[in-house]
Amino acid sequence: MAVDNKTVFDRPVALRDVVTHYCPGCTHGVIHRIVSEVLDELGLRERTCGVAPVGCSVLCYNYYNCDFMEAPHGRAPALATGFKRMRPDMIVFTYQGDGDLASIGMGEIVHAANRGEKFTTIFVNNAIYGMTGGQMAPTTLQGQVTTTCPVGRDTSMTGQPIRMAELLSALATPAYIERVAVHHPKYILQAKKAIRKAFRLQRDNKCYTLIEVLSTCPTNWGNTPGEATEWLDDNMMKYFPLGCYKDFQEDDSGS
């Protein structure tokens, strides 16, 4: 009995076959793949428009094989709002880093979530500004060294890192908000489940969805890709616990 050779893991259609600019070991690449797989599996690629932030992942529009808009720093949720309101039949997602979403764009993300805008946000939290070379971000941990807190973040002067999943979950408007991670295979499985659920809820026009994804930044954390996964596991997971912070109940669908 000839046993056919089946490919059980391959590049999704929604992810272009190009080498990315991301640093070796940067888990942006894993998140890009997961989102693209979900777009393929739900058959959404051809009616999707993504919104790129300003940051390392601004160039994600060169990797995602769907229509894209490039937003001013922090304003992706506003672009997504404007687009989705005009084209509620299309799938819209913003892909943002922690500087983009939790710092300059805090106003936009809070209000978009609170209005219950029917788009999905993939919020990549790597506790640092990547593109500009490793500065302190709103999610930088206490004592974490960056180029703008060279002796470690002094939270008595700069405040505590911001837990976005929890913060946005305090909003009353129905939403599905979960924090996941991608630095270990078992978390990658959970991350994909959550991202698929978020896009499914959007496809079914239910509510605002945001997935916060803890991610590594070996170059600016100053360690190897392998060490970065361990640093994330030991430090970020404690301060940013994974889990579903707001789940969507069917009866909430009043909005």
Partner: peptide, 26 residues
């Protein structure tokens, strides 16, 4: 497929010849 899961650059393609150790669905 664990190697392919963690690869940030989708550099790994996994093929099976009928036999596969199904640990998880993904």
């Amino acid at each position: 497929r664990i190697c392919a899961l963690v690869c940030p650059d989708v550099a790994i393609e996994v093929n099976t010849h009928g036999l596969m150790f199904e640990l998880f669905d993904y």
